[in-house]
Write a protein that binds this DNA or RNA. Structure first.
Lengths: 171, 171
DNA sequence: CTGACTGCAAACCCTTTGCAGACCG
DNA sequence: CGGTCTGCAAAGGGTTTGCAGTCAG
């Protein structure tokens, strides 16, 4: 399973260009780690990427994989799925509802919408398995963060490694 | 911010009934932990619930909070947000896309849909902050899990504490 | 050559678990 | 009273970091 050669080539160029621009070095490890994740149609975790890369570079270390993955994330070449490294969050709302999530602080708010409860799901999804529920996640910058950010950098300059925010949300 | 007294009362009754039916004891700690999460409009993590409960029961321990939260989850009185305690997963797909997620094994697949890219978001969401993107998450039981489960219990009897599945997805 | 990068191992944080005493029913 | 449940402390597992040697530019 790998993406077409042409597409892949374009992504590699993007990668090189991004590295150059960001002034980061283009190492063998980084190239292979990028290849591994870019060719994956799944959403691997670090360990999985690690195993894949290790097949070609037996000496890579898991930490390098982590470092590189976050680097790629910082360069905007990949993203993360769901909340970045956070603790599990519990939800007392049992109604069918949707979420607004702040991309910066992780604030999560519920909202309801009858329209969104009955979305038309493409037939192609059926091949993955049964459909039990659908849920919309709206991402944006919450009011509080917008205020804070207004007087500073507009892009997240530094990726928040651990605990990017207050888990409880606003309050 | 707390839910109305009447609503809250109903939820407490539900809680008591569920405990009785499940044969679990109704302890002071559990009651307070339930009160804490049920009255929260946020989606607190265990630590946050812990802090709230500790204000009323100074001797509670964080582990009891964890145990109780998972118990409530098992009883169907609360749910968790996003993937349960898993490692961070990286996504090389930068296009606007949506996800199919298996509730059992955590398999995550991408799918695209022009219709879903342009959902009408309720105006009420605006009050939370800016809207940058919307993303639909379809939950269901993937084909592989459905096959496995076919010959056994239909409900998840035991909550998978750690690493509920293979992070890489199918393959 | 030189600063950035890697690998190693130890540190960290969140979460879970074993055990003895406390408590619900 | 008996079986659960709690609190404590220690183990676990994923992720990050400090350091010295290595490599890209």
């Amino acid at each position: 399973m790998k993406t077409g050669g042409v597409e892949a080539g374009r992504r590699f160029d993007q990668f090189r260009a991004a590295c150059r621009k960001a002034g980061v070095k283009l190492t063998h490890q980084r190239l292979e780690i990028f290849r591994e994740i870019a060719s994956s149609t799944e959403h691997p975790d670090a360990e999985t990427v690690f195993r894949g890369v290790r097949a070609r570079i037996p000496t890579v270390s898991l930490d390098t994989v982590y470092r590189t993955l976050w680097l790629l994330d910082g360069l905007g070449l990949i993203t993360t799925l769901g909340p970045r490294r956070e603790s599990v969050r519990f939800d007392p709302n049992l109604e069918h509802h949707h979420h607004y999530v702040c991309v910066q602080c992780g604030l999560a708010k519920d909202f309801e919408s009858a329209d969104l409860n009955v979305l038309a799901i493409p037939a192609s999804v059926k091949k993955f398995g049964s459909v039990m529920a659908t849920h919309v996640e709206v991402r944006g910058l919450c009011a509080a963060c917008a205020k804070k950010t207004a007087s500073g950098r507009s892009k997240a300059a530094k990726r928040p490694r651990r605990k990017p925010s207050n888990p409880g949300g606003e309050r």
